[in-house]
Write a protein that binds this DNA or RNA. Structure first.
Length: 786
RNA sequence: GCUGGGGUGGCGGAAUAGGUAUACGCGACGGACUUAAAAUCCGUUGGAGCAAUCCAUGCGGGUUCGAUUCCCGCCCUCAGCACCA
């Protein structure tokens, strides 16, 4: 055969065009074949473009998708754009450029680079969340939640900069100071929209048990939901006809309660304060430590005495009531019983404010093993005492608390989904009629700068509307939705993305979902993944879906750091763009390299010299076509068959790095043999094609096969025996490796042992020592104990 | 502090129903080809030692004929969470 050069650019350009023109990766949603749905967390199309780290996850999903296609599955591997959000809006603020145009430019660049990388996407299913055809369904889901009382409005504290007149995120208000103008931030209560995810707390907590997710991710969600069981206990106030409720998970320590502390926001006793106390407390509340500084001042527990006392229900002792900012209003009842002896924080508080410390139990290593040393329950262990105490106190009841809070979904931002609510003077809060959706982002705004009011309010034609009920004058809600709403259901939309009437054809959605394999970064362990589970469960309850968990199997990819082992960032100047890398080394090399460099889930650093090694390897693969031979070879058949097994196994396990080294070992051996049959080369190309789709397609064609290798079949695993009759096995003496000998396969122990005793070198080592024991594992090892 | 990962050559990393530790690759060194270089190819490459051999999978114990793998006790490191009563 005439030799030709491995011309990367020519090959990659040729095939990416043909695959696109002929729609090679189209998914037939109506197919009767077994389905496989593999999904990437869809990207935010930023102006910075993709760097080599982004393609790691997409390469892995593409490998799995191609592998499953070859195995006969109908595969769905779609892609879309999470295009609403701050960076685009900020870019618009800076440049005055319309966010729609910015998004369009960015997504088309992203798409081009994915195609260049050889990722096999069915682009007819592309979705863009800032597209009205998409965000219409955000609004529909909102309305469904609203109808069920799961979307509601309430006043909620936000970080407010009085000088910029804008709401700030926690990140923008570090240290209680505005990021832009250095003014002191205030806490302001304004109307906000929430989704009532707390109604689903228990299901979100319990249903993760059967999911094939990383244990750490499941744990993080469990912690985030934070279920704890305890008691709500009422403490009567001394000399007053009033009581205060506290929540505790350790009711058994109630005998050690030496104070009560209220959250600063807890106003339930305000009208009982005398005038001096009132002054002191309002002063205290004004000077509250901003949330972000709490961390630093953790060991300083400030508070103010209220001059009021409560009665400990177990012994009728009066105990002082304080207001302290280490108590959170949002958790429990916004009040605690302070037990300094058995709680670190209470201890710090008591020490600072000279409050009595009363030990009631003898604390042991696992807390549950502690023993009561005081009270009627002296000598009892914690769990017994706990049960008895809660039952004996009249004003106590068991209760469950969660850390999970409702999902705040409203934003005073331009570039997001408008919330479909109208405010009417007569009818109040009125939901927009479904037939009037989508509520579009107005097109008559060209100044996106924040003014303290939601930007959409600037558009008169948007804001001033008729009430859907009474047709009177009304105003539209101008807040937009959190972008996590967009991503909480996008995986449903790929099935039937052109459907304008519903999220998609129910039958097909229920056939294709849940997602079989979901890959993305672990930074979404709680946010996106929890919200998606919530919305899925809600749509299940609405009988739209017949499954209530969206992602059966989840895996996280580790980040790729820069060559300097720092996170890739403009700041360090260590970013390797995908565009550059493909230009320089080719897509096949980038893909193989990223799979090879480290275990998939592990962080690793880019190393240019290593990718060159992969390039050499691809060239050697290219040259295999010139050593094809007709002569059959048992070893070659055997190795090919073994390789198929190994690759299959490791793709299923997600051990992509092992696959690459196995390909290398195979090629090393074939080169040694200096021959490969056409049949084995074809098999090798097929099983390599998920990793290196371009070069394999080209060689496939060159050795006379019909288009396309990606539509061929994964080779069967055959029952091929290695015909070598002799094998080399290691010999140990006292567990240490001392040599190896050739034996006939399946030889019994005596024969092997005799061979060892015949071997001059080994015989020498045993010498006159008595052989105490021989351990022989057939075809594997022989150990002689002397 | 809590939760979850990790500690194996100069580097990225293999190997766990206990069975030749360091596969595969990078780098390095030596050689071939070349006027020369690049590319390519062939060797060598955990440490010590002339050698037999000894020592090495974070540290210390244990179980076992045999431990990177299992058990007990530590150390270090990365990531996430963190005043949640």
């Amino acid at each position: 055969m005439k030799r030709s050069e491995y011309n990367i650019k020519e090959i990659e350009n040729k095939w990416k065009k043909r695959w696109k023109d002929e729609n090679l990766y189209r998914t037939d949603i109506t197919s009767k074949k077994n389905k496989y749905y593999v999904l990437d967390m869809f990207p935010y199309p930023s102006g910075a473009g993709l760097h080599v780290g982004h393609i790691k996850g997409y390469s892995a999903t593409d490998i799995v998708a191609r592998y499953k296609r070859l195995k006969g599955f109908e595969v769905l591997h779609p892609m879309g754009w999470d295009s609403f959000g701050l960076p685009t809006e900020n870019f618009a603020i800076k440049t005055g450029k319309n966010p729609n145009i910015v998004t369009e430019e960015n997504t088309s660049e992203f798409k081009k680079e994915l195609i260049n990388s050889g990722v096999g996407i069915d682009w007819d299913r592309e979705i863009t969340t800032s597209d009205p055809d998409y965000y219409k369904f955000n609004q529909i889901i909102f309305l469904k939640l609203y109808k069920k009382g799961l979307a509601y409005k309430k006043k909620s504290p936000v970080n407010w900069c009085p000088s910029c007149k804008t709401v700030l995120s926690n990140e923008q208000s570090v240290g209680g100071i505005c990021e832009r103008c250095d003014s002191k931030i205030e806490i302001k209560n304004i109307d906000q929209w929430f989704f009532k995810i707390t109604d689903y707390a228990d299901r979100l907590l319990n249903d993760n048990k059967n999911l094939d997710w990383p244990e750490s991710t499941k744990k993080m969600q469990e912690k985030w939901i934070g279920k704890s069981i305890g008691a709500k206990i009422k403490f009567k106030l001394k000399d007053l006809d009033k009581s205060i409720s506290i929540f505790t998970t350790k009711p058994e320590t109630i005998y050690g309660t030496t104070f009560i502390a209220l959250a600063p926001e807890n106003k339930s006793l305000d009208n009982l304060f005398d005038s001096n106390t009132k002054k002191a407390i309002s002063e205290y509340r004004k000077n509250l430590t901003p949330q972000s500084e709490v961390e630093r001042k953790k060991d300083v527990k400030t508070g103010v005495f209220t001059n009021l006392y409560a009665i400990n229900p177990t012994n009728n002792e009066p105990i002082p009531i304080w207001v302290a900012d280490y108590i959170l209003m949002e958790y429990g009842t916004g009040a605690i019983m302070g037990v300094p002896a058995h709680d670190k924080r209470d201890m710090l508080f008591a020490q600072k404010h000279n409050i009595k410390i009363e030990y009631v139990l003898n604390e042991k290593k696992p807390y549950e093993k502690s023993i009561m040393i005081k009270s009627d329950y002296k000598g009892m262990n914690v769990s017994e005492a706990r049960k008895n105490i809660v039952e004996s106190i009249k004003d106590a009841e068991w209760t469950t608390q969660y850390k999970l809070r409702d999902w705040l979904i409203s934003r005073e931002r331009f570039w997001g989904t408008p919330i479909p609510i109208i405010y009417c003077k007569n009818c109040g809060e009125v939901p927009v009629d479904e037939k009037d959706l989508p509520v579009l982002i107005p097109d008559d705004i060209d100044d996106y700068r924040p003014t303290g009011k939601p930007p959409l309010e600037k558009s008169k034609k948007f804001t001033n509307v008729k009430c859907p009920k009474c047709k009177g004058k009304a105003k539209r809600e101008a807040k937009t939705m959190d972008t996590f709403v967009d991503s909480s259901w996008y995986f449903l939309r790929f099935i039937d993305n052109k459907n304008t009437k519903s999220i998609g054809n129910k039958e097909y959605i229920n056939h294709w979902l849940p997602v079989d394999l979901y890959i993305g970064g672990n930074e979404h362990a709680v946010g996106h993944l929890l919200y998606s589970r919530f919305i899925t469960k809600f749509l299940y309850d609405e009988k739209i879906l017949n499954f209530d968990e969206p992602f059966t199997k989840l895996r996280h990819q580790g980040l790729i750091y820069g060559e300097d082992k720092r996170k890739m960032s403009k700041r360090w100047g260590n970013v390797v763009t995908l565009k550059f890398a493909i230009e320089e080394y080719g897509a096949d090399a980038i893909r193989m390299y990223e799979m090879f460099m480290a275990p998939f889930k592990q962080y690793s650093s880019w190393e240019t010299r290593s990718i060159i090694g992969i390039n050499k390897f691809l060239t050697r693969i290219w040259n295999l076509q010139y050593i094809t031979s007709k002569s059959k070879n048992n070893e070659e058949d055997f190795l090919t068959n073994e390789l198929i097994k190994t690759i299959e196994n490791n793709i299923e396990k997600g051990k992509y790095n092992i696959c690459v080294s196995e390909y290398m070992k195979y090629v090393n051996r074939v080169e040694e043999l200096n021959s490969i049959t056409k049949e084995n080369l074809e098999k090798f190309l097929i099983i390599l094609s998920p990793y290196a789709p371009f070069i394999t397609e080209e060689i496939w064609e060159k050795i006379g096969n019909t288009y396309s290798i990606h539509k061929s079949k994964w080779p069967e695993i055959l029952n091929i025996e290695n015909k070598n009759t002799h094998i080399l096995i290691p010999i140990q003496i006292n567990g240490k490796f001392r040599g190896e000998i050739y034996i006939e396969k399946d030889s019994p122990e005596e024969i092997v042992l005799n061979k060892v005793l015949d071997d001059n070198k080994l015989k020498e080592k045993i010498k006159n020592n008595e052989i105490k024991k021989v351990i022989y594992i057939k075809n594997k090892i022989l150990n002689i104990v002397i």
